[in-house]
């Protein structure tokens, strides 16, 4: 019965997609495209000063939405910490991996950290930004935690870092609100020279803050999951 119902549901979905597919064959030349995207593409370079148009959409045009996204990620991390709290049993023996793995991971960690910072700092010039960069930094911590069981983070430092980063995101938005632009997350810094690292006003600042927040959050998620075994 269960299989039958699921196959019925799936057939409905297949039918839905089949009817949708005709409408989804998007016009494949840019001449007959009249969309928000074209308007944003033609204005983004002058208005935001960021070479990466996707970044200017994410951080400035839809910056408030990104704040919500960061909040959702924070709630997920908070939920995981709450679920995992107090589930760990104290283990008497600490199992460390072999010397080669430990040394290798410690060698790898600074490189991964640096690469994450690079991705965050170039978010307005190349694909990347705060979210992928933060995930790369958290992956560095993950590698360390996987190989050496005896490593312990200071959880308070992580939480403080995360909270400060979230506050600075809102603070940057409020400064824009009080500034001449008079709207939340409005750019208030000079745009600088186009296509260089120090350009695009507050975009690199916001992405740095997002990167710190995501990195700290995901590291503490990984730590909480590891502690709960």
């Amino acid at each position: 019965m269960r299989k039958f119902i699921s196959i019925l549901l799936l057939a409905g979905f297949v039918f839905y997609f089949a009817t949708l597919a005709g409408g989804l064959m998007i016009p494949s030349s840019s001449a007959d495209r009249k969309s928000v995207g074209l308007e944003i593409l033609s204005r983004a370079k002058g208005e935001t000063g960021a070479a990466n148009a996707v970044t200017s959409v994410v951080v400035l045009y839809r910056g408030f939405d990104t704040l919500g996204e960061v909040t959702v990620l924070f709630l997920a991390a908070l939920g995981i910490s709450v679920f995992m709290k107090g589930t760990g049993e104290k283990r008497k023996t600490v199992l460390d991996q072999s010397f080669i793995l430990k040394t290798g991971s410690r060698l790898l960690f600074p490189l991964m950290f640096l690469f994450g910072i690079y991705i965050i700092a170039h978010g307005h010039l190349t694909p990347g930004g705060g979210f992928p960069g933060g995930v790369i930094i958290a992956t560095g911590f993950f590698v360390i935690l996987l190989t050496s069981e005896s490593v312990h983070f200071n959880k308070t430092v992580m939480s403080v870092l995360e909270g400060l980063a979230g506050l600075s995101f809102i603070g940057l938005g409020v400064v824009g609100l009080l500034g001449p632009g008079n709207s939340f997350l409005q750019n208030f810094l000079p745009l600088g020279k186009f296509d260089t690292v120090f350009s695009a006003g507050i975009i690199p600042l916001i992405y740095a803050v997002v990167g710190i927040k995501v990195g700290a959050e995901l590291s503490s998620v990984v730590y909480a999951m590891k502690e709960s075994k």
Binding site: S29, A51, A53, V54
Partner: peptide
């Protein structure tokens, strides 16, 4: 959002 033959929206 794809348009045939076009590149990523980055002014590189």
């Amino acid at each position: 959002g794809y348009i045939k033959g076009n590149t990523a929206p980055i002014f590189s």
